[in-house]
Design a protein around this nucleic acid. Structure first.
Lengths: 208, 208
DNA sequence: TAGATTGTTAATCGATTAACAATC
DNA sequence: TAGATTGTTAATCGATTAACAATC
């Protein structure tokens, strides 16, 4: 039996739904309609219903979606009903900020390892995480069976570092280096680059 | 005369083209075909030609695109042929990393102001930028005619801070807080949240 | 000239929206 | 029962790709 293939663009919206739903739960709400959820996210009610219906029937006519139930389902679908160990490569400004970030813990992730090549940084402890020598990266990541990495190294070494990560079992890379990584089929890469976002926005700005 | 409206999804790819083209220029390349550029970015050659043709005829049959010329055009189109002053709100881990980031300068942006509410941080100097009291934010941003802000404040105060920024003339916000900002028509908001990206990727991972 | 590659049109593909029967 | 809202189908909309004449 073939599991139906869900469009990636649908999958990409699920974390947004989860975040909004979690926020609503904190606000003490119990039920939400597709219309209300859509209004918060700037997404049409029809799209939300269509997206969610790809995974099951989570709502009830007349009342909408039970927030704790929908949250549970989204957490399960996104596979964050467990904690993923994550490696951070690079302990510069970005890597350090990631190591210190408190938002991972409660959303399915834990920074389990932190690497740098600078002898001045190796051995330091950031938020309880020791900075290890990047020379030991491959061995330690393979031992830890880590599948997720955040790449915060200089652009010049990003591709080679990614290659090494993939070679030892990493399957998902969140790339903070301002380069396009070339990876083989089956490896997920997402990219975070503030300059890209800023340039996208300035297109629409009027000079002042 | 109506300027033709360019789809936003096209605009969103231009910064990627610019980054790739700049990289190629550094590598000493002089010409690039839509096919070569597409191969680097994982985008079809047809799409690149179609996107670029929305803005003019930048290529030449038989030889492709002259890299320095195309770069110049993209810089002009994205309006980064000038330097945009940017305000960073929040001088925590993320805000500090943004204030220290060296990648803005050469791509059209300058962190001109940095704000925080913590008396222990106000007055400190990060990368030559003094941390100012967020209580003075509205006055200083209005005086500086700043149109672009990066928001790195706690989630609870993100919306109200955004409202204040918009009230004093900010038109583009790069939001690092894990909340959806509600803004009026004409205000650009882009969002950076590592958790959203990680959860998108874990959907595709096999448990180990 | 022969080969390569553009810009553009038309065809295809995929995503979003509108509408509504079903039902809580 | 009346009102509200789901899940789903069909219609619409928009984006991507294929194809090719033009031309460097």
């Amino acid at each position: 039996m073939t599991r139906p293939i869900i469009p990636d663009i649908v999958v990409s919206r699920l974390p947004l739904y989860l975040r909004a739903i979690s926020r609503m739960e904190e606000e003490g709400l119990e039920y939400v309609s597709s219309h209300e959820l859509g209004a918060r996210l700037g997404i049409s009610a029809a799209q939300i219903r269509k997206d969610l219906s790809q995974f099951g029937e989570f709502g009830k006519q007349g009342t909408g979606y039970h927030i704790p139930f929908l949250k549970k389902q989204l957490i399960r679908i996104l596979k964050v009903d467990r904690v993923w160990d994550v490696a951070v490569i690079g302990a510069g400004d970005v890597g350090s900020a990631l190591a210190r970030y408190q938002g991972f813990q409660e959303h399915g992730f834990r920074v389990a390892m932190l690497f740098d090549s600078d002898p001045a940084k190796i051995g330091k402890v950031i938020n309880g995480i020791e900075v290890r020598d990047v020379a030991d990266m491959e061995r330690l990541i393979a031992e830890g069976s880590i599948q997720v990495a955040m790449l915060a190294v200089p652009a010049e070494v990003a591709q080679e570092t990614a290659d090494k990560l993939i070679a030892v079992g990493v399957r998902a890379i969140l790339n903070y280096a301002p380069v396009n990584l070339a990876v083989r089929e089956g490896i997920r890469v997402e990219h975070i680059d503030p300059v890209i976002h800023l340039q996208h926005m300035t297109y629409y700005l009027a000079p002042r």
